[in-house]
Amino acid sequence: MKRIFLFAFVGLVALASCNQSAPEKTIANLKDGIKGETTASAKYSAFAQKAREEGYDTIAKLFDAASKAEMIHATNHTKVLTDLGVAMEAFNPEFEVKTTAENLQAAITGETYEIDSMYPRFLDDAKAEKVEKATKSFTWAMDTEKKHQSFYAASLEALNGAGEKTLPFEYFVCPVCGNTYDKATLEPKCGFCQTDQEKFIAI
């Protein structure tokens, strides 16, 4: 009797697993997030090169740091997607490089979209579909983009006014979540994931 009950229980669990739908919205959002963050990483690396060509080494440092952070976000999103049993399709990042002032404005526009629209929607879907790892990865990315947006805005203001000397020249990136600091705002542990400062990537 116990054996029959056990078989019946296992069968019900298997049936429930089969009927449980995949988190389709979150899967699609993870793929979009991977594309966006990978493209941003490549774009900011190109923006850094352009800034150096124009003599803006300090702004180039910021773009280098942001490029590293965006790749960490892409890697985190990819890990979540893989855990869901889904593979990411190959794609080629597409972007345009203009002057450093225009590139900073493009970066601000991109970060603003992610902060105000993209990641809030992704988070709503991940919470509704109960994908906790996606919620964490999206939150880390969105909170970092807020800092990047602020850094870019300050850089554009300096470029149009007081000059680069007013900007930080050293940045640090958390290797776990991508959180980005300048030297003046460093913390003993990452404010997002609690990783020790000693593990931060210096840019």
Rank of each mutant, 00 (worst) to 15 (best):
E24Q: 10
K35I: 12
R121E: 15
G33T: 03
L81V: 12
K61T: 08
T139P: 00
A60P: 01
E53I: 14
M142W: 03
F122C: 03
V13N: 05
F200N: 02
W140S: 00
V131D: 00
D32N: 07
R121F: 13
M142D: 04
V10E: 07
M71H: 12
G11I: 02
E114C: 03
F47N: 02
T82P: 10
Y44F: 12
F200V: 05
A128R: 07
N179P: 02
C193Y: 05
K43S: 04
N179F: 06
T195W: 06
V173G: 14
E54P: 11
N160T: 14
A60V: 03
T144V: 11
A162L: 05
G163S: 04
Q49E: 14
P175W: 07
L81H: 15
M142T: 08
I115V: 11
T166N: 08
A128E: 09
A66G: 02
S150C: 06
T39V: 09
K43V: 02
K61A: 13
E96D: 09
N29F: 00
S150Y: 09
A8N: 12
K133I: 14
A162C: 08
A87R: 11
K31N: 10
L156T: 06
Y56F: 09
S21T: 04
F47Y: 13
N29I: 02
Q49M: 07
A69C: 08
D83E: 14
Y171P: 00
T26C: 13
V131C: 03
R52N: 08
C177S: 05
T100S: 13
